[in-house]
């Protein structure tokens, strides 16, 4: 150590630095560099290949006047808000049910969580089959005598996104349940005892005591759900292919199609920059709450 004067500072702890080279490259080249590159090129009129001919905000103007993009945003909002509400409610209720000191808890948890092990492709294809009007649920109900029964979400442009929602919830609620269950288990047993002594009904204890105490769990879960929503892609590709027409289009699919199929890179870059912006809007307040809050408390 005594023989390491200033010129060798870079070489100190050299092995750790070598070990961190992949991380440094990923952080700087891919995450920072790649993101900056895409944002930068979203101001050009790149078509088949990226080229540096700047057109200002043209791509964004075109983006926001394209019906397909507006549909995808609308779908993302519907899908997002409903996924958020339903996964939190269902996830929490399932966790509460499993927290009642029941038998076979592991079995039930295994059943509720297994869809999460499956890919969105598999999820989408199974639900495409179940919701198939000719053979699936609609057909089964009709064969029971309700011949007028109509349930074909995947073929009705107005409700197709709800068909995707059903599949998405089936796949994802198990994870939320697990996170919530961990939160419930983290609550001190004495809280329950105190509430019982005070004669507070169980449901009231949950709503007014337990849920406020689980705030950090809810916040983390919220961020997890939301960052998943923005990325939704495979599920739509497998279940509906974006159809009927463009009715179940989502931003991630719009980006992919413009970059790799329509060969309109500029549009793809602009659309993906908008996706980035939406994530920034979600993550920044969370980071502020999470890390700004700690400093205060």
């Amino acid at each position: 150590m005594s023989t390491s004067p200033r010129p060798y500072r870079l070489l100190r702890n050299l092995n750790a630095k070598i070990a961190s080279v992949p991380m440094i490259l990923t952080a700087l080249v891919i995450f920072v560099g790649g993101t900056a590159w895409t944002v930068f090129y979203s101001f050009t009129d790149s078509k088949l290949l990226p080229r540096l001919r700047f057109v200002g905000l043209d791509q964004y103007e075109r983006l926001w006047s394209t019906g397909r993009w507006l549909t995808s945003i609308e779908n993302l909002l519907i899908y997002g808000v409903l996924t958020l509400i339903f996964s939190l409610v269902i996830g929490f209720l399932l966790a509460v049910l499993l927290d009642q000191k029941i038998r076979f808890e592991d079995t039930f948890r295994t059943i509720f969580l297994y869809p999460f092990a499956l890919s969105f492709i598999v999820t989408g294809l199974v639900w495409q089959w179940i919701l198939n009007p000719e053979f699936g649920v609609q057909n089964v109900v009709r064969s029971l005598g309700f011949t007028e029964f109509v349930f074909d979400p995947l073929y009705d442009p107005d409700i197709v996104i709800y068909g995707v929602l059903i599949a998405g919830l089936w796949q994802g609620t198990g994870l939320i349940m697990c996170l919530m269950l961990a939160g419930l288990r983290g609550i001190d047993e004495d809280i329950w005892k105190a509430a019982r002594i005070d004669g507070i009904p169980t449901w009231k204890t949950y709503i007014f005591i337990i849920i406020p105490m689980m705030r950090p769990v809810f916040v983390t879960t919220l961020v997890i759900i939301m960052s998943g929503i923005v990325k939704v892609y495979d599920l739509v590709v497998a279940q509906t292919g974006g159809g009927p027409g463009n009715a179940s289009e989502v931003p991630a699919k719009y980006v992919y199609d413009f970059m790799f199929a329509a060969q309109n890179l500029g549009q793809g870059f602009a659309a993906s920059t908008m996706m980035l912006l939406s994530v920034v809007i979600i993550v920044v307040p969370w980071a502020y709450l999470e890390f700004g809050g700690k400093r205060r408390g």
Binding site: M23, T35, L265, L276
Partner: peptide, 25 residues
């Protein structure tokens, strides 16, 4: 080592960036 935490922070923040932003680069 000096700077390690900074790179790590970038890495974690990067996990939230939609893949679509980075696929073409």
């Amino acid at each position: 080592f000096r700077g390690a935490e900074t790179f790590f922070a970038i890495l974690i923040v990067g996990a939230f960036i939609p893949y679509q932003v980075m696929i073409y680069p």
